[in-house]
Simulated assay, not measured.
Amino acid sequence: MIHAAAPDLDLATALALYEWQREMGADEAMLDVPLNRYDLDPAPRAAAPVPADAPAPAAAPVIAADPVAAARAAAAAAGDLAALAAAMAAFDLCELKKGARSCVFADGNPAARVMVIGEAPGREEDIAGRPFVGRAGQLLDRMLAAIGLSRQSTDPAQAVYITNVLPWRPPGNRDPDPAEIAMFLPFLARHVDLVAPKLIVLMGNTPCAAALGQRGILRLRGTWATAFGRPALPMTHPAYLLRQPAAKREAWADLLALRAALEA
């Protein structure tokens, strides 16, 4: 920087001072009035050109959400059945949701003493938005009616409440895989807590895998177990009975055991 020469300096002295300051690196004249350079908006610095062969910058690591932990938190926050149904419908970490039409939550009377847990919605259930409405569901209604129970009953002593392990239909009606079962197990456990049934019926392999950690329904059926802290009776799924009518004898025995437990 160059200071303006004082008036009492002669030209030769002023030139000598200028040369000295220039050699010291001063190259800008000071103004008579101080300048606050913080008041100026500096021009944006142009980005340096990137060579064509330069490697692409590394992407920031993406941390995948833990679906089981997310389901556990969402289920715990649901204070009633309506909140639980909304939480399950809003749960986006299950790929089945993308290919299903409806979130099939439940059907029947929530005050019922019996809670039936099935596997997953089929085509008819996905369309209707209710569990067990196809041929297997119609057979289930007849089976329950044989021991004086109905999903339409308003009397808790004769009513049934029905849900599934999964609310979304698997493609092609395939069996739910272990990851899908684990993902929705917190919702199912919360569902049981909110309904608080006296007895649970586990219809098929998938609910037995979810609630008991076991498979092999033909071995498990008819033997009382404990699921979610309540008595639970594994039974063959009505769809199996449609394929194997001879198994209806065992199913009838299981229904009689269910009625006896309700009367005890």
Rank of each mutant, 00 (worst) to 15 (best):
A189E: 15
P55R: 14
W168C: 04
A87Q: 09
L220V: 11
A54S: 12
I117F: 04
A75F: 05
R135S: 14
G216E: 10
H191N: 07
V62C: 06
P44K: 12
D27M: 12
A26K: 12
P186M: 04
L212T: 09
P131D: 07
P170T: 08
G25I: 10
W252T: 14
F105C: 07
F187G: 07
Q138A: 11
A247D: 12
W168R: 08
R72A: 15
A211Y: 03
E250V: 01
C94E: 13
D141G: 10
A77L: 04
A78S: 15
P121K: 01
A239N: 14
L194Q: 06
Q138D: 07
P7Q: 02
G148S: 03
G204F: 04
A251G: 06
E250S: 12
I2F: 00
M115K: 00
L144Y: 03
A87K: 05
A60R: 14
R259A: 13
A12I: 11
V133A: 09
E125T: 00
R219N: 05
M1L: 12
D10K: 02
M24W: 04
Y38F: 10
A54K: 11
P197D: 00
Y38E: 14
L11S: 05
L256S: 02
F228Y: 15
I147M: 00
E180G: 13
M24N: 13
A52P: 06
L96D: 03
P197C: 00
L255N: 07
Q152K: 04
P170F: 00
A26R: 13
R221N: 12
A86E: 12
A159I: 05
L262M: 13
V201T: 09
A71F: 07
P167C: 00
R259L: 07
G213L: 09
N205V: 09
Q158N: 10
P167I: 08
M1E: 09
T226Y: 08
A54Q: 11
A90Q: 12
E95S: 15
T163I: 05
T223Q: 13
A253P: 06
L15V: 11
G134Q: 02
A5H: 09
P61E: 13
A73G: 11
R230D: 08
R249N: 03
D155E: 01
R190K: 15
K248T: 13
L31F: 13
P110M: 09
A260Q: 14
P55T: 12
A159H: 02
A106S: 15
L96W: 02
H191D: 01
T163M: 05
A209R: 15
